[in-house]
Every structure is written in C-alpha cells, then in structure tokens.
Design a protein around this nucleic acid. Structure first.
Length: 431
DNA sequence: TCTGGGGTCCTAGGACCC
DNA sequence: TCTGGGGTCCTAGGACCC
C-alpha cells in the first residue's frame, strides 16, 4: 500500500492564504501594476498595512506611519492606495466560493485565509489538488494564493509558510505528509513564526532556549509551556506533533462589536468627544440590528496621548450593563455618553476612542422585564431610520448628540473605485 | 513595538451560595 | 461571625490572531 492511500484514512487540512491580499486586489483592476511596488494604507491613511513583494524588497516596513515614509514612497515610485474594504471583502467572498468547489468543508479564518478539510474524500495527490486550486483562483480572479497541507491545522499553517517562502521550488503548494518532512519543517520554523506565539511569548521562549517549533515540542519543555500558556500551549504542542485537536469551526455570531478610531488631530473637549462617542454607538447599534441581535453591555474606550499625559495610565475602559437588551441608537448612545461624562477629563489630550457592545444575544431571545423596559417606540423608529438609510445610501438621520453639520469622513486620499460592489463604479471596457 | 481596526480564548480572583 | 469545604457566576485583564 502506498503512503498516500494510507494517508487517505487520516484527516487532512489545508491552509489557503492569499498573497499580499489587499495589494493583489488592487491589481485585479489595474493589471498594469503587476510587478510594480504597491502599498495599502490603514483607515485615515494612517500606516502601511499591506505591501506587494516589490514594496517589501524596496525596504518599506510593515506598519510604518504614512507620514514617515511619504518621501521614500515618492522617491521609489511606489503606488499608494487607501484601504478599500468594500472591494477586498467582495473579492474575499469570491475566493472562498471557489475554494468551496474543492471541498464543502471550508472555514473562513480571516479576510484572506481559509482552512479546508478533506475528511472522507479520496484525493490521491494533494500537491496536484492544491495546484488546481491555485490555478483556478488565479484564472477566475487573478488573485495569487499559496496552499499548505498537513494533518493538523497548526501544521498546515507551517506548510503554508514554507510554500510561500519557496514559491518557485514548491509552485506555492507544500504538503507535509511524512514524519521526515514534519520534523524538517518544525526545525526550519522559527518560534516567533509559530501560530499562537506572539511578541511576548517569543521573548519568554527565547530565554528558555526554545528557538524553533521543534524545540517547542521537546518533552523537557512541556512543564514550561503549560506554566506559560496553559491548555492553549499544550494544544498547540499536540497539533505540531501531528495529533489533531483543533477542529473546523462553524461560523458563530459575533460576541462583541467594536467601533474604535484614532483621531487625526487631538480631542480635548467634552463636546467633541461626545459627538464621536455618540456616532460610534450609533454604528454599533446599526450593526446589531443588521445581524438581528441586541446587546446587554456597552463598553466605552478612551485613549489619552501616551506621551503627554502626566500619569502612567492612558487606556481607559468603562463597562455599563444595560437594564434590558437593546439595539436602539438612542439607548446605546445615551449609555455611552453617560459613561463618558463620568470619566472624561477636560484638558487631557485624547488620541483614540471607541464603543464596544458586548454580551450579544439574538433579537428574539430578549428577556421580558418586569420593571424596566425600552420605550417600544424605539424599534419602529429604528426601522424607519434603517429603511431610509438603505434607500438613500447615506447616514442622514442622526441623533441630537451627533453634529449635523459635521461629517466625519475618513481621510482616503488614494482610494480605488468599488469595482465590484457599486454599479456606478463598475469598470468600463473600451473596444 | 503596539503601528490600525477589528476580533477570540483563557485564567485568576472576587462575590455569593449552601 | 470568618468558622470548613465546595461550588458557580461574573469580570478584568492578558495573551493571541488577521
């Protein structure tokens, strides 16, 4: 019996990852930029969040603030884009749809990544199967991907990293299907590149002379891992040893919804901040209604200017539990503003703020309360507002606490059109 | 090194119960 | 009234992910 026939009885995972996803999305509609350096900026054009290989090679660092590299970008002739989430989200959905043609078992892990599972399928040659995926996504969407196969999720992450690193040699596909390959891969993987080991744990691991994924799974390190990482660490260890303990996950309703923003300038007055907080709260409420749910708690988040505050503390979270579950703009906004009144310090410099709604439940699971209830008119009013906004496509109805004159639009000086989601911006082909 | 705007899971400790 | 042992629920905070 050949090895592959034998493997067929075991579970096999794949991790599919789009290469430099945002940059690749921009190139789909501007193919003249293929081979050219591109960077994508975060909201408000704040810092760099995606780079094409060419931009990486030119030494543009990930996360660099835009103003610090502005001259360099210009000098090196790098194309700059504001982030266009409507476009990326839509292309992401299309990639996932294509992957579903290869197995019904797809877990969308992030906007540019998915785990696939092939349980119960007879696939003779995974490398070839991965190549088919890659070619189809390339042909139908012009998005390049890499695929890593292995018996566990954590190992498929490792395999993907190898595929990405050695794209010419591997054709962007790597399969870990033998003990030798697994050990070799683990020895090759630096500890900081292991899925689940972040900045802080890397430091601790290195002090313990754990430098690679292979060191991590050595028996004499188990006690240390358990102490530092708890069950999460042990699970990771099993996964790297080839024992699958992380399964495919079903999409769940979100447990939190957060709207937070850094401010381009500073905010120092209560009124300004009240307007912001009220708007964040409104957007949270809208998102709740969109997924037909309510929240039981509201968190207000404030961040002072770290360098200008006299005290050590600069992050502030306040939680208020609602007397009844709600998704009303009015209720959530007034609770958020009430909290703001309590904690806002006039004269301090604020850099960032946000509203997070927590303890989310389905709309129809609302508990009946004997004493305190939301004004039933809210629901109808919200319905009217949502319908109006849907029709006009603009947020014209606002709460009194929001500033009618002021529209807080993001700074997006390099935005590409919404090619795939807005009829007015569809590409026109000239013949 | 926390860059920006989202998220998740786990654990320790306090409140409270019998 | 803090005395034993055991349990649950909740929250804050720490770690991570993209």
């Amino acid at each position: 019996m050949s090895r592959l026939q034998f493997l067929y009885f075991y579970s096999m995972y794949a991790l599919v990852d789009c290469n430099n996803f945002y940059a690749s999305c921009e190139r789909v509609f501007q193919p003249q930029l293929i081979g050219k350096p591109i960077v994508i900026l975060s909201n408000n054009d704040g810092c760099i969040i995606s780079r094409s290989y060419e931009a990486k090679d030119l030494g543009i660092p990930m996360g660099a603030p835009e103003f610090k590299v502005r001259n360099e970008l210009k000098q090196k002739n790098i194309h700059v884009f504001s982030s266009n989430y409507a476009l990326y989200g839509d292309l992401s959905n299309r990639v996932m749809k294509i992957l579903e043609g290869f197995t019904p078992n797809v877990e969308v892990y992030s906007i540019d990544e998915a785990f696939l599972n092939f349980n119960g399928m007879k696939i003779d040659d995974f490398h070839d199967y991965g190549l088919q995926m890659k070619r189809r996504v390339q042909k139908w969407l012009s998005i390049p991907i890499c695929v890593g196969f292995a018996e566990t999720k954590a190992l498929s992450k490792v395999a993907n990293k190898i595929a990405k690193k050695y794209q010419e040699r591997t054709q962007g596909i790597y399969v870990i299907d033998t003990e030798e390959k697994r050990i070799k891969a683990l020895k090759w993987t630096k500890i900081e590149d292991v899925w689940g080991i972040g900045f802080r744990l890397t430091k601790k691991m290195k002090m313990q002379r754990i430098l690679t994924a292979y060191d991590f799974i050595q028996p004499h390190n188990e006690a240390f891992i358990k102490k530092e990482m708890g069950v999460v660490g042990l699970r990771l260890k099993y996964e790297l040893e080839g024992k699958s303990v992380l399964e495919m996950e079903e999409p769940k309703d979100k447990k939190n919804i957060a709207i937070t923003r850094s401010f381009a300038g500073n905010i120092t007055t209560f009124d300004e901040m009240k307007e912001r907080v009220s708007t964040f709260a409104t957007v949270c409420a809208e998102k709740l209604r969109k997924q037909k749910s309510c929240c039981n708690g509201v968190i207000l988040y404030l961040r002072k200017d770290k360098y200008k505050t006299q005290r050590d503390r600069y992050n502030f979270y306040v939680l208020e539990t609602l007397p009844f579950a709600s998704n009303s703009n009015i209720t959530i906004s007034s609770v958020a503003v009430k909290m703001l009144k309590k904690v806002f310090e006039e004269g301090e410099i604020y850099k960032k703020a946000g509203v997070i709604v927590t303890d989310i439940i389905p709309e129809n699971a609302k508990q009946f309360h004997l004493f305190e209830e939301e004004n039933p008119k809210h629901q109808k009013l919200m319905q009217v507002i949502d319908d109006f906004h849907k029709r006009t496509g603009e947020r014209k109805i606002k709460l009194a606490s929001q500033d009618l004159e002021r529209t807080w639009t993001m700074k997006q000086d390099h935005l590409s059109p919404k090619y795939t989601t807005n009829f007015n911006q569809i590409l026109t082909v000239k013949c």
